[in-house]
């Protein structure tokens, strides 16, 4: 491979501009679906997992064991294997196995238990006494969840979502390789298969910047929400 000048590299990237933009949109779509599923399904699952622990308000050894086992089961799959094994399900739900929407199915599948575990861990930081005070005041389990647990843990929950987003940004790159599209896919196709290292480099730099922005944004929001 011959070295190219900076000017040549830049003009290659400019030529790829529309495709890079397209890849960004695909990544955003995959992440958007995956994270929404994680929050909407994994969030409640995490709350339930927490409440079912011994000593909590919905303590149930059987439920806690079953939910914990399920979460661990899905989380123990290497992502690429999860993706391949979910191909039939993906085809059933989306009607296709390629494209960002199809890739979002295994992403969601992986993100739901991941976020559930993060939520459960975060809720453990809420002091037991505060929950007990709410019980003593006659709060119902739903009121305890929304008015006490989620509110008291809100900064930690933002941190959990930040971790989830960054992890799944890189998972989405893996999903891209098997036909999902997105930034990771673009980096592999041009940077690896066509030996255009400048594309690989540019995509990695782009991801570095995006990760920094997500982390800074998450930290800022968590600090604003934390009054402890």
């Amino acid at each position: 491979m011959e070295a190219i000048t900076f000017a040549e590299a830049w003009s290659n990237l400019v030529l790829l501009g529309p495709e890079i933009w397209q890849a960004c949109l695909e990544t955003a779509l995959m992440l958007g679906i995956g994270l929404s599923a994680a929050v909407l399904l994994g969030g409640p699952l995490g709350v339930w997992l927490y409440l079912a622990q011994p000593g909590q308000i919905l303590a149930n050894r059987f439920v806690a064991g079953l939910l914990g086992w399920l979460v661990n089961l899905v989380r123990s799959f290497p992502f690429i294997i999860l993706m391949v094994s979910l191909v039939p399900l993906t085809r059933l739900i989306v009607g296709s196995t390629i494209g960002p929407v199809a890739a979002a199915v295994p992403l969601s599948f992986a993100a739901i238990p991941y976020f559930a575990r993060l939520v459960e861990q975060t809720l453990r930081e809420v002091p037991r006494g505060v929950v007990e005070a709410a019980e003593a005041m006659g709060a119902s389990p739903l009121q305890i969840v929304f008015k006490v647990l989620l509110r008291e843990a809100r900064a930690g929950l933002v941190n959990a979502l930040t971790i989830l987003t960054i992890s799944f940004l890189s998972y989405s790159a893996v999903a891209g390789v098997v036909g999902g599209g997105g930034i990771g896919d673009l980096a592999i196709r041009y940077g690896y298969y066509r030996f255009q290292s400048e594309v690989m480099l540019a995509m990695v730099l782009l991801l570095v910047v995006v990760v920094q922005i997500i982390q800074l944004g998450g930290n800022y929001l968590a600090a604003r929400l934390d009054k402890r």
């Binding site: 006494g129 007990e132 005070a133 006659g138 119902s140 509110r151 402890r228």
Partner: peptide, 24 residues
Amino acid sequence: ASELRRARQNIGMVFQQFNLLANR
């Protein structure tokens, strides 16, 4: 359970460690 919750609204409680909600 729901009758007990209503009855508890008639019984205030104060704690050694205060147990206030930190984000309120």
